[in-house]
Simulated assay, not measured.
Amino acid sequence: MEEGFDVGARLRQLRQEKQLSQRELAKRAGVTNSTISLIELNNVSPSVSSLKKILDALPVSISAFFAGDEPNHPSPFYRASELTDIGDGQLSWRLVAARRPDRRMSILHEYYPPGADTGEEMLEHDGEEGGVIITGEIEITVNGEVGLLGPGDAYYFDSRLPHRFRNQGSQQCVIVSANTPPTFSDGGQELHHA
């Protein structure tokens, strides 16, 4: 998560704005009461998929969760330090222009350390996504078809097809990807690669 960002306080603030108890939010999100409590106390760092389930129950988008105030006339340029990391502490997904209100696509700089896996539960969400592998190797499963991709290889598929990303190699995999519509900014939609 973004360095210095207080995930627990932000979740508590949003939950209270929606006038939900921890118990009610947990029920809506399909997680335990203690999960909500531990996150709000910053005793655990939620995985991206867990955080997304909780935010969908509010509903609040990942972008809105991490967003600050975007200038009225945002610069077209973003320094590496300005990208919003919406990863889970193991996986890192650095989103370009996360706070831009009129964004119609998501561009990500993704990092998958050795052993990283988006999970056994296959992902499915509206839209299309594609990317290019910069370094390392990644195993991508799309609708039962498995591909092992390396530097310079690319992928592009309909995101409604069940998919999964796994790094079974010994080095970090870096990918630059894009998806549309920007599922990171649409509350209630499944998170890309989560």
Rank of each mutant, 00 (worst) to 15 (best):
I39H: 06
I39R: 09
I39M: 11
E40M: 07
E40V: 00
E40G: 02
E40K: 05
L41V: 08
N42K: 12
N42E: 03
N42W: 12
N42S: 02
N43L: 13
N43Q: 14
N43G: 14
V44Y: 10
V44Q: 06
V44L: 06
S45A: 07
S45E: 13
S45T: 01
S47T: 15
S47R: 05
V48C: 04
V48Q: 10
V48H: 00
V48E: 01
V48K: 08
S49G: 06
S49T: 12
S50E: 07
S50C: 12
S50A: 15
L51G: 01
L51C: 03
L51H: 01
L51I: 07
K52E: 08
K52Y: 04
K53N: 13
K53W: 07
I54M: 03
I54T: 11
I54F: 03
I54H: 07
L55C: 13
L55R: 03
L55Y: 04
D56L: 05
D56N: 15
D56P: 07
D56W: 02
D56S: 08
A57R: 05
A57E: 08
L58P: 09
L58R: 03
P59V: 10
P59D: 14
P59N: 13
V60W: 01
S61Q: 12
S61Y: 04
S61A: 05
I62M: 13
I62P: 11
I62A: 06
I62V: 11
S63H: 13
A64C: 05
F65D: 11
F65S: 08
F65V: 11
F66S: 01
F66V: 10
F66M: 08
A67L: 01
A67C: 11
G68N: 13
G68Q: 15
G68P: 05
G68V: 15
G68F: 14
G68M: 13
G68R: 12
D69G: 00
D69R: 15
E70D: 12
E70F: 10
